[in-house]
Amino acid sequence: MNTAELLMLALLLDALLGEPDWLWSRLPHPAVLMGKCVSWLETRLNTGSARRVKGVVTAACLVAIGLTLGGLLSLFGQLVEVIIAAILLAQRSLVDHLRAVALGLSQSLVQGRDAVAMIVSRDTDRMTGPQVTRSAIESGAENMSDGVIAPAFWFLVAGLPGLLAYKMINTGDSMIGYRNARYAQFGWATARLDDLVNLIPARLTGLMMAIVGGCLRDWRGIIRDARKHRSPNAGWPEAAMARALGLSLAGPRSYDGKMRDFPWVNETGAKGITGPAILRCCEILWKTWALALALTVAIALIF
C-alpha cells in the first residue's frame, strides 16, 4: 500500500476507536512519553548561559528522535505504521472532549468550567457560560489543525518518520514554547520550528473548514482575522470556524489571574453563545475530517 492508503486506514481507525481507556490505563500514551523526553532535555539543557543555542540543540534533538524512531518503527511493517499513525491522530478524542464540555454546561456552569479546564490553559474558575463555550470551540478549531490535519499532512509528506518528528516538535512547543522568563530563550527555536511545520496545515485546515462550513465567500475576512491572532497559524482555523458558526471567538480572557485584551475574531458574530454551539462545532470538525479523508482517498487513487 502507498502512504495515502495507510493514512486512510489510520484516519478511519482513529475515528472508530479514539483513545480506548482500557489500553491507556495500562500503557503510557506516546504523547506522555514524548512529554517526558522534552522534560528530560529541558531539565538538563535549560540552565546557565547560551540558552538560545541550547534551545536550538534541543529542537534538533526532537526532530532527530522523531525521524529515527519513526524510521525504526516503520521496519516492523505497514500494520504497525497504521496503528501508530491512528494513535497519534486525535479526531475522535478531540470531539469527545468538546462534547464533554457541552454536556457539562447542560448540567451546570461549574461542570462546564471543570470540563473545559481539561483542554485549555487559560483561567476557568470565573468563566461565564459564553466564555466556556468560546474556549471549547477555539480549542477544537486549533486542535483540528495541530492534532489531525498537520499530523496527516506530515505523514503524507514523509511517512511515519515525518509524523513522529512533527509530534515531537508540537509537544515541545506546548511545553517550552512560551514567552516567559524561563522559556523565552530556551524554547525559541522549538516554537519557531513549530510555527514553520504548521504553516501549510493551519491554512489548509482553515480552507477546508471554510468549504464545509459554507463560508468560503468570506475568505478575505478569514485572512484578515487570522492575522490578528498572536500565533501565525492558530488564527486560520479559528477564523474559519467563527464564520462557519456565525459567532465571535477570542476576545479578552484571563491567564494566571491577569486579564489580557485579545482582539475578537469575527467581531460582528454572536457573543452570547451557549453549549449547543459546541455541538455545531463538532459537526464542522467531522465534516472537515470527512473532507480530509476524501482528499486522502483521491491521492491514493491518483498515485
Rank of each mutant, 00 (worst) to 15 (best):
P252Y: 10
G147W: 08
F153S: 00
L41N: 01
A136R: 09
I278S: 02
Q111I: 03
Q185R: 13
R179H: 12
R224I: 03
L62N: 02
L291I: 08
L279F: 06
M208F: 12
S145A: 14
R134E: 10
L245Y: 04
N170E: 05
F76S: 13
K258W: 01
G275V: 00
G235V: 11
M241S: 09
D218K: 08
T128I: 02
L301P: 02
L27R: 13
T133Y: 02
L89A: 07
H29D: 08
T128N: 03
D123W: 07
P263H: 03
M118G: 04
S121N: 05
D218N: 14
M144T: 15
S106D: 15
V53F: 13
T128D: 05
E283V: 14
P161S: 06
T68V: 14
G112C: 11
A50M: 09
L94R: 07
R203N: 10
S74C: 10
T128C: 01
G177D: 04
L27S: 10
T190I: 14
I65V: 15
G147A: 08
P28G: 06
L72E: 11
M1H: 13
K287V: 04
G35Q: 04
G71W: 05
A100H: 12
A270D: 12
I169F: 04
S93N: 13
L7E: 06
R280N: 09
P130M: 04
F76H: 12
R192I: 09
I169H: 01
N233A: 12
T268P: 02
G140E: 11
R113F: 07
T288P: 00
T124W: 05
G235C: 11
V53D: 11
A292R: 01
L11F: 09
E267P: 07
V148D: 01
I83W: 07
L41Y: 10
D14Y: 06
R122D: 08
N266G: 01
L295W: 10
E42H: 11
A226D: 06
G275H: 14
L196M: 13
M127E: 06
A31P: 01
I83T: 11
H97A: 13
D21V: 13
A189C: 10
V53E: 15
S139P: 02
R220W: 09
I211D: 00
V212A: 04
C282K: 03
W264A: 14
L11N: 03
I83S: 02
C282H: 05
N266C: 07
L23K: 03
L199I: 05
G162V: 05
E138D: 11
S135Q: 03
A64V: 07
V32L: 14
W22P: 01
K271A: 10
L27E: 11
D218W: 06
I200A: 13
L156R: 06
R182W: 01
L62T: 02
E238R: 08
L12G: 00
S49E: 15
V82T: 05
A152W: 03
I84H: 02
L7C: 10
L199K: 09
G71P: 00
L160M: 10
D256Y: 14
G140F: 11
I223A: 12
L17K: 12
A210Y: 06
R220K: 10
I200S: 00
F153T: 08
A298V: 13
S248G: 12
